[in-house]
Nucleic acid binder design. Sequence first.
DNA 1: CAACTGGAAGAAAGG
DNA 2: AACCTTTCTTCCAGT
Length: 696
Amino acid sequence: MATTNYGEELDFRLTFGEDGQQHSLGHTDVSLNDGSSCYFGNVSQHQLVVNRPGGISQASAHHDGSYDTQRTGCHPLESPPRVFDCPSIQITSIPTSTNQDGLINQDVSQMHTSEAEGGAGSRDHMYLPLETFHRDPSSLCPSPCSSISSRSWLSDASSCESFSHVYDDVDAELNEATVRFRLASPLMSPHSSPLPSPLTSPLALSPHQSPYQSPRTSVTEDSWLSPHLTSSSSRPSSRPSSRPNSPCGKRPYVGADACAGTSSPHLSGSPSQSPSLRGSVTEENWFGNSSLPYPQHYPSDLDVPLKTRRTYKEHTTQDQATGVHGLEEAAVEEEGYGAGPLSQDINTEPTLPGPRNEDFVEHFLPVPSHFTWSKPKPSQAPIYSPPCLPSLDTPLPSQYGQYELRIEEQPRAHHRAHYETEGSRGAIKAACGGHPVVKLIGYNERPVNLQIFIGTADNRAVRPHAFYQVHRITGKTVSTASQETVISATKVLEIPLHPENSMSASIDCAGILKLRNSDIELRKGETAIGRKNTRVRVVFRVHIPQSGEKVLSLQTASVPVECSQRSALELPDIERFSPISGSVSGGGEMHITGPNIFPDSKVFFLEKSPDGRTLWEIDAKVVREKSKDMNVVVEIPPYHNKNVNLSIQVLFYVSNGKRKKSLTQSFTYLSGKISHCFNTPTKARLLACKCFQMMQ
DNA sequence: CAACTGGAAGAAAGG
DNA sequence: AACCTTTCTTCCAGT
């Protein structure tokens, strides 16, 4: 786990660290699995293949078989029923004297009015205030952000991913946290159903959860946003230029870390009431249902990301009556950043002093210096009752008991996503040339739906990616039947796994759609940052029928996939390195191999504090004569403190320049005593070395 | 013709 | 504020 700790550039840089497990079959990955998984148990393992680990949940599942359940945090079965509510009612919980407040009140009143008027019509004209900090409605041009695919202000848990990736400090913090604590996503909504069903449709079909249709057929977001902004095509015809208008006031890249939170994620208001695993919402029926009177949960009322906002006891009666959802979310947020597992009792949430209207800062939660989420509970099974299935944010294991969801063929590390303004760029391909292959092992009684969505690829638990959506590919070249649906604003493809196909499917029908950053970032409540957040994982999930009308939910995530046009071609990528540990005195050589690693590359060792500050960093000396393309050899630098008694885990990365740094990997310095023990060659170590040589 | 690809122009953002 | 670099988004041409 810790052996694959990626620290830097949390953002879109991934950390396989926690997961170290890889399920893919064959090739070098096998060694990684072994290496990483037995690392702690046997430090003598000497080499680590880094790349292409499985999803985080996978790892956990393998490591302790429990991670998943714990991380699941709020088990749906235990959750109190949540009042179905119209999204942003909790808006009223915000103090109301500032300008923003005024705006908020207006929003609320308009929303209420709309609701009072009821019907689809009012919803179509629901007033959604623009982010005043970001863009002035009066000067707003037809949004470039017309993408129907945008996840919009629904920013969710998943969007947490987004801000952090850009900032090293936060990065490091999270990185550390992920290494030391299993991140239990506090953001999952136990009530949101990933399974499409007629009854979930109202939520899933909210126009605010864009169906991500092709640009040619899309209902534009603008048209949903407000009558003022309505446009009839996803690419605003009123836009004078073919290029998007400047997202005036776009969140500054640097300042975004202030937004250390996001609004609620996939808090789809109500649970699916249908046990059906099918009944997907499709493009076809989307429009038919678009008038359903339940808008998705709009997190925002205020120009403050919910996750950073304090929650107060003074929630109005109305809040409590109509916004249980919101309160719960708030509680979840507090829990997430602060302490233990999700509490079922929202009343236990810390009471915070009331807001001082004049002090807007008070509305933000401090970003903790470290995470204190509790450790996984090994015994909790990922079993759910169909109405309360895990949200897409909920980490799940890839394996449980006899069952395992395995990616037999991983996707390529690079797949250029297409914009809505472009044509499709085709289906995701596998490294071997075909397409990714996924197999459900241990179950072959009946067909089961395989769900596919695009997830984050940062250090934390996989969540739906705010800036990418899976895109259904059709055509002659596609042999796999698929169905499209939308779950909590995330587009999901469903592919049946049939017993006659050994519960295996070739994923040749899934492409990746890129949503414009401005579309997402300008959403009220959205804190995700899209810039440089271009890595994703393809996430696969199944719900296996169990006795008692329950299902066992498994999920596995692919290796990271770089979706931008070019950066993947330039960033160094550490695929494997050896050794993984060494004496605090330094010495010896480390071989690092991977794409875009050259003799000219530099390698830096560093240590960070739990709060993300760099405590120590040193430029390792490159042994150029032994380095070659794809491989660099460095002298392992001595640790700054040779008197440590315990092993010390540090990080290192390869750099090809200021903006061309690899993800960080972990290296362990062993104290003199320990190092002496492990310097004795062991079978495992020799085996690891041999493997490494073979792979060279 | 539609889908897919690779390349690149120009805008936007960041330093 | 000007300038440079990087990244994003759109467009184009070719398969």
